[in-house]
Structure formats: C-alpha cells, structure tokens
Design a protein around this nucleic acid. Structure first.
Length: 234
DNA sequence: GTCCAGGGCCGTT
DNA sequence: AACGGCCATGGA
C-alpha cells in the first residue's frame, strides 16, 4: 500500500492516540506567572541528542530555583547554570546556548516572547538559526511547539523512517520538511496544519521509540503493511 | 560493560 | 556538499 505523510498521520494517530506535546508543567507557570513558551525554548535546547527523562531532571532543577526566565538565565552565573542542567548532558555547550538565547530575548525583545513570535516564520527562523547552538530542528521545534507556527519538525527518527518505508523524498532536512508540509497542507485546512504537524512529529517519535528503532522491531509495527524495509523484494 | 537518546559545531575531504 | 569526531549524562 502506498504510504504518504497523510496515511502516516492517520495510521499512527489511530494506533497511539493523542500525544499532547510539548510536555509542559502548566501548574508551575500558573503559580509563578511565567511564560510556558520559554520553558519550551529551554527544553528544545536541552533535549538535543538527549533522552527526555534527563531533560526533565534539568528542568526540575531550574524550576526548584524558579529560574525559567530569560532575564534570570541571562544574569545567572554560568558555572551555576552548568550544575543545574548537568543531568541533561553536554552541559558545557548547553549552558552557553541557554545563556545565548536568553540574553538575545532579553536584549532584543525585553523578555516579551509575544514580540519575538509576532513576525513571519521566515524572519524568526533565520534569526534563530543565526544563534550559535540552534540548528534547523531546534529552530523548528521552537517555531512549532512554542510559537504554534505551521512548521514541520524533522529529526533523526523522521529521517530513519523516511528512508525505511521509504517515503518519496531525499534525506536532507529541507527536502523531507518540504515533502511533509506539501502533502499535509494539501490534505488539511490551513487552520489545522500546526496541530497536525505537532501530532505527527510526536507520533513519529513514538513509532521510532517502540518499533522503528535502530534495530527495528517489525513484527507488530503498525506500518508493516506499508513498509518495504524487511521485504525480500527490496 | 555496551548502546542509545526528541542535534549542532567544527574541521577535513 | 558530505562526512566524522566531539560533546556527557542516565536508563535499558
């Protein structure tokens, strides 16, 4: 059976249900009158090539000191910040990256995340990519999950699945992204695309963690009928 | 002990 | 343009 991003989304959402990304502690932000979008920005950097369970430990350390805040992080002693985020790994470079984007938001937008996001996707994306430590996936995660922009996030899992199924796309970041966005925007209304991108990326992560692993577990995979990966003819 | 995780940078070819 | 080494912790 022919596979497309649309079929992928329908099949996976039937199998796994709603994913409710980005995982966010809403109670914390209500209590502290802080902006959950900034927690997403921080989390997007901390989770670079890192298991989310480790990111949660780092985020909890920051929350216990109530420093999920762009001004506070840009003022914070970097050695102290390293200690706080240590469980998330790569803490030397990540501490720099966190201070980097925090001071950018503080200096240029006076910590007003609304002003940062209230522009065109292209403008925001270019600005994010210009910051050291923010590549395409981190930028797009911030755009989609914090900014609610219609941007599909490509990660290592998406590349792996695209290659195995295979989907009719090359494996570069931009080509896969355009392929998904073209197909989804063709099949759904403009209003619902951010939500579809949100779910689909999270569903792909779920699929890759449980079935389409490095060593694939194809026996009960929900895409077995669509996938050519372990078929003899392929 | 080994492998892997919701990447990105930098140097080499 | 493409590729490899590097960054680091914690759970399986």
């Amino acid at each position: 059976m022919e596979i497309s991003p649309k079929i992928l989304y329908e099949t996976l959402s039937k199998k796994f249900g709603k994913q409710n990304w980005w995982p966010i502690d809403k109670e914390y932000h209500k209590k502290n009158n802080s902006d959950p979008r900034f927690e997403i920005i921080i989390g997007a950097i901390l989770t670079q090539n890192t298991a989310w369970s480790n990111v949660e430990k780092a985020l909890n350390n920051l929350k216990s000191e109530n420093i999920i805040d762009s001004k506070k992080i840009s003022d914070l002693d970097i050695e102290y910040l390293k200690k706080m985020i240590k469980p998330s790994g790569f803490f030397n470079q990540k501490a720099k990256r966190l201070k980097n984007i925090s001071s950018h938001l503080h200096n240029n937008y006076h910590d007003k995340i609304d002003d940062f996001f209230n522009r065109s996707v292209n403008e925001i994306r270019k600005e994010l990519l210009s910051l050291n430590g923010i590549g395409p996936e981190t930028a797009d995660s911030i755009l989609l999950y914090a900014g609610n922009k219609p941007v599909f996030v490509v990660d290592a899992y998406t590349k792996r699945i695209s290659k195995r199924l295979p989907l009719k796309t090359n494996i570069s970041y931009d080509e896969i992204q355009q392929y998904f966005e073209k197909n989804i925007s063709k099949n759904y209304s403009k209003k619902e695309t951010p939500e579809i991108y949100n779910e689909l990326h999270a569903l792909i992560v779920e699929l890759a963690k449980n079935y389409c692993k490095k060593k694939p577990d194809c026996k009960k995979c929900p895409l077995q009928k669509n996938c050519m990966h372990n078929k003899k003819s392929f």
